[in-house]
Design a protein around this nucleic acid. Sequence first.
DNA 1: CGCCCCATTGAAGGGTTTCAATTATCGTGG
DNA 2: CCACGATAATTGAAACCCTTCAATGGGGCG
Lengths: 237, 237
Amino acid sequence: MREISKSIRSNSYSISCELCSLSPICIPLMLNHTANSIIECKRLYAKDEVLINKGEPFANFYIINSGALKSYEVAQDNSEQINGFYLPGDIVGLDSIYTKKYNKNVKALTNTKVCEIHYSEFMLLVDKNRKFRDLVFHLLSNDIYNYQKLILFYSQKRAEARLAFFIYSIYSRYEQQGHTSLNIKLSMSRADIANYLGLTIETISRILSKFQEQQILLVTGKYIFIKDLDALVSSGE
Amino acid sequence: MREISKSIRSNSYSISCELCSLSPICIPLMLNHTANSIIECKRLYAKDEVLINKGEPFANFYIINSGALKSYEVAQDNSEQINGFYLPGDIVGLDSIYTKKYNKNVKALTNTKVCEIHYSEFMLLVDKNRKFRDLVFHLLSNDIYNYQKLILFYSQKRAEARLAFFIYSIYSRYEQQGHTSLNIKLSMSRADIANYLGLTIETISRILSKFQEQQILLVTGKYIFIKDLDALVSSGE
DNA sequence: CGCCCCATTGAAGGGTTTCAATTATCGTGG
DNA sequence: CCACGATAATTGAAACCCTTCAATGGGGCG
């Protein structure tokens, strides 16, 4: 079981852009077709490596190729507050167009490959290429739409519903990119999930156990198999 | 006290665009300067009037001139789930660029004046006018930034912190537009606030009473005077 | 003025957190 | 490859916060 799960989203191997599963929505690839090789593609960051420090001037967009990132803030008492997770296909930096600087810290949860695009070159293309401009508008608009849905769900009181939605949303994000497997790897720790959802690790743990008893999930450490997707979606209504 | 509060953001009178307090950030005004009078400006909606039904094809952006709107969804059991509130200066429809249809219902909380801009004319200007395009990019980016901040706060567990932030965020939104008064009118009911924050009206009520005892707020129905802004911001840490 | 709706306040119940202990997992070095 | 320590995850019991249910109080509108 463990081996099967692990193979689903392994990031131990490197693939070319042409073979990349994300190519249909891959901005770097699209850019390479219009303006050759201006992008530093598929740079590798190690687990726990920091990509972005909050407050730094906005320089690059980051597009996740494989792996996972977390964005977070650090309070005075050194406690972390996680703002969100970035999975393959996600783009980091859209919120910085306005503020001109990075608004959150971003760190790699596992070994992660990202494509980096300079802001100036990105905006140059927005000006020149109408098709690209439309794509960017859609990306921005879609981001807003997704955040609205997120807020809707996190305003929910019950912890069960929150965690169920969290798991489903990860599944859903992979599914949008053609990975229809019901096997999911949680790149983040229980502590990260708890922090993000405004719950405690104990509550996360208890609910996962409960979902397992109810035959909704099969939990093996960081690997989750969704046995009953409908039940997961409708849990906590 | 009551009269003072009421005068702060009264929407019982109509003002010209040139005198409008929002003109520095007013898109319709900006549009009128570049492309004359393509906008149906300052249309009035009555309290409880529905501006948008979810699922309708995306046609117009709405910019709030005065008053307030709420966006919400209706579940199978007819229960409402509020997604957000729109205050003067806010723009409705940014999330629909991607989906091509309206994603939420939108209703007036009080008598509300809005400026309407056709999507097609809006995008025409994006193509033609570079300055306007930059403005729109900033609007979209800023929206994402604000949603991120919102999520950060709604992941907070404690009800006190949520409500404090909610009140502060309303103050903050008015402040961004030059209304620095510590008097706030809550256009929405306690039930709407509770629904939005994922709490109950009783909890909202109790916390407001507590904030009053602590000399942080002065609550008079829908009118709130912030006696201690610092204490409000730092409450519930 | 009285009705109705909204807001406030009180007491009991349920869910989540906190504190504490145990078990499992990962990384490291032997 | 196994052993070991450190870190992460699970599980249990008590405390606390928020909700639920119920009753009272107040403000707006006809």
